[in-house]
Design a protein around this nucleic acid. Structure first.
Length: 493
RNA sequence: GGUGAGGUGGCUGAGCGGUUGAAAGCAGCAGACUUGAAAUCUGCCAUGGGCCUCGGUCCAUCGGGAGUUCGAAUCUCCCCCUCACCGCCA
């Protein structure tokens, strides 16, 4: 969520930001509602103050009169007292009615304003390239193992796979079938399209990647490992910025409807019986659980930065992706991901520094795996609602791209990581703040900054591993760093 | 699933109809004492928001929502959550 005060002061900035992100949102309407609400609030509060004063002076007197009324026996005296009481009550009651009326008007304005505020995107940073879509993303740099690398023999982006390795590549789908690493038909039988079953060495390799990535972040980079819920309440999805924009991307567990049905179906349940419970959502990334951890908290500045890593299943409906990447392990409904998150002080320079750091961890990880990749600076139109800046990492996948006359794919980059810088957008929604000033003194609470980045998402990352490490005979060499996680196995097949 | 007890400031914990935005303790901050520190003493220490002559001032908030009342942390109802014991169970 953006800062409402900032919006008031500089609406143009947010209008431009929304335009750059290609996200139409009625900012003027938000401003008008805000002004309307404030006007109502000012009037209401003035009246409420008056009412409060009146009550304080009238209250004790009323108590006294009521006491006398109880004791009074003479009808004439009673009537006089009753009249006095009624008069005393009338004034604050009249004010209260006005206050309540204004309150009703305020509450009528609020939902629309809140809904609008949740959809106003964070403006992209000034140095993010402007663009119309993913085609305008800018390649920052590439990396490939040097010639003579032990396992893959090095890689040259200028040459085809065949020129690099001396044989035509098989796709990961082909390899998985031949080596029995993935059983797609049975996955589909049970769960429908985009489902799969990792089998044998395929499952081992998947686990090896995740465990290696986790150890890599914890042991080498000092991240705190966490297990977090993947089934969360709607507030958690809104707080982390995934809702309302991405609501159709998340699986929902409709517990309320179910509880209602149970009540209606049971013998004792009347038609109007409403069962308790709340709906839950399956998270599409461990980021939700990691960021939700400190929701509503005021942290001590000395605790920052918080560096968390988790490995969790991720659930995505892939609504609107019909037909895209339908074959293979690239786009699936459920996968596992090691995710890193950093919560730091509200400082742009620090935020930028951590962003580079987080990308550095991925550099080191992919280089240790010997996988060629590139860094892609996302352009304004390719950013989500919540980020000010985003850099994607794409691994080279020899099985992607155009297929030539001989059925050999050209290869292509496929996204495996995404590093976002959010400033305080996410933490403001989560109401996550820290006490500035540290030991020097107590400052006002400040909204934290947050960042996140993939460490390893599998099985997608298995695609470049299998395709890059395949051998002419159809076997696959196990990357050196993963061997200890596969019982020392050096080759699959 | 059954029964019972609870949810109060950074933490512990009083208050159960009327200057209680909230006692007390701990933690924190400032000062005094001290060569320094500890101990001790004194003072300050919630959050969000509105208005404003930027010094203030007012409003809201004691799990969330609705209600009763002139007045609610305190009473009523609904919801959420936690704990204990029993039952069941990976």
């Amino acid at each position: 969520m953006i800062d409402l005060k900032a919006l008031r002061e500089n609406p143009a900035k947010f209008k431009e930001g929304a335009a750059l992100k290609k996200m139409p949102v009625d900012i003027d309407r938000a401003l008008a509602l805000d002004e309307q609400r404030r006007a109502l609030q000012t009037r209401r509060q003035a009246l409420a103050g008056e009412q409060g004063q009146l009550e304080k002076s009238v209250g004790p007197l009323l108590g006294k009169l009521n006491g006398e009324l109880k004791k009074a026996t003479d009808p004439a005296q009673r009537a006089a007292l009753e009249a006095q009481v009624a008069e005393l009550r009338a004034k604050p009651a009249a004010l209260k009615a006005q206050v309540q009326e204004l309150e009703v008007q305020e509450k009528a304005v609020e939902p629309e304003l809140t809904a609008l505020m949740l959809t106003i995107p964070q403006p992209p940073d000034a140095d993010v390239p402007r663009g119309q879509g993913s085609d305008d993303n800018v390649q920052l740099r590439t990396w490939a193992p040097a010639a003579g690398a032990v396992v893959t023999g090095g890689w040259d982006f200028a040459k085809s796979f065949k020129a690099n390795r001396g044989f035509a590549p098989r796709t990961h789908i082909d390899l998985c079938g031949r080596l029995g690493l993935v059983d797609f038909p049975r996955g589909v039988k049970m769960s429908g399209t985009r489902s799969y079953v990792l089998a044998g060495d395929g499952m081992l390799l998947h686990q090896a990647v995740l465990r290696y990535a986790m150890d890599f972040m914890v042991r080498r980079n000092g991240f705190v490992p966490m297990s977090v819920p993947v089934l969360v309440r709607e507030e958690c999805m809104i707080g982390t910025g995934f809702f309302p924009a991405g609501r159709e991307q998340a699986y929902m567990i409709n517990e309320r409807a179910r509880a209602d049905a149970d009540v209606a179906g049971s013998a004792g349940g009347g038609a109007d019986a409403k069962a308790a419970g709340h709906d839950l959502f399956l998270t599409g990334t461990g980021e939700v659980g990691l960021m939700g951890l400190h929701e509503g908290e005021i942290l001590d500045e000395a605790q920052l930065p918080l560096k968390y890593v988790t490995v969790s299943p991720c659930f995505r409906r892939e609504a609107g992706a019909a037909g895209k990447d339908t074959a293979g392990l690239y786009r699936v409904h459920v996968f596992d991901k090691v995710e890193q998150v950093i919560i730091c002080r509200a400082d742009e320079a620090e935020s930028r520094r951590w962003h580079k750091e987080m990308l550095g961890y991925v550099d080191a990880l992919l280089q240790s795996l010997g996988l060629p990749y590139r860094l892609l600076q996302c352009c304004t139109a390719d950013l989500g609602v919540k980020n000010a800046d985003m850099v994607d990492v794409e691994c080279w996948m020899p099985g992607r791209g155009e297929v030539d006359a001989d059925g050999v794919p050209s290869g292509g980059f496929g996204e495996t990581h995404s590093a976002s810088r959010l400033y305080d957008y996410q933490c403001r929604r989560l109401n996550m703040r820290y006490r500035a000033g540290g030991e020097a003194g107590k400052g006002a609470p400040v909204v934290c900054h947050s960042l996140n980045n993939t460490v390893a998402a599998s099985p997608r990352l298995l695609i470049p591993i299998l395709e890059m490490y395949q051998n002419a005979d159809g076997t696959v060499t196990v990357p050196e760093v993963l061997r200890e996680y596969m019982g020392g196995k050096t080759q699959i097949g």
